[in-house]
Amino acid sequence: MFQVTRKMLWKGTKTGLQTTWELGKVVVPTAMVVAIFRASGFLDTITAFFAPYMGFFGLSGEAAVVLFSGYFVNLYAAAGSIMALNLTISEITICAVMLGFCHSLLVELPISQKAGSPLGYIFLIRLACSLAVGWLLGVVLP
């Protein structure tokens, strides 16, 4: 009834390797760009610029660091920022939900594009969801 043949194993491995190669062409160069951003301090500059606008989401200025490390780097960076800052539980919740919609953009947008969706369109949808839900939670949460 349930069969495993050598042909299946080989075909699966081949498909897996092909997929890894396709994604590697995106993932590796992107990681290099992110490393440059981080090392050049460009990441800090963006964060400083946006800090004043955080009140709109019921967040303190510090939370901009969390949002931008999540948007541009990844959720681990955002979690690290949360740990380093003194945010309230509702601020952590707002940041977390916002970042759930929109994170690791430099890595994930090219992946979405690779999977057949236009980059700008996926970016707009994710950012819009993130900002709208962030605003809503800022109003609703105590």
Partner: peptide, 14 residues
């Protein structure tokens, strides 16, 4: 990624 994708593709194929 490879550590998950390759086994996943084998399981899928089977």
């Amino acid at each position: 990624v490879a550590c998950v994708v390759i086994p996943l593709m084998i399981v899928l194929e089977i």
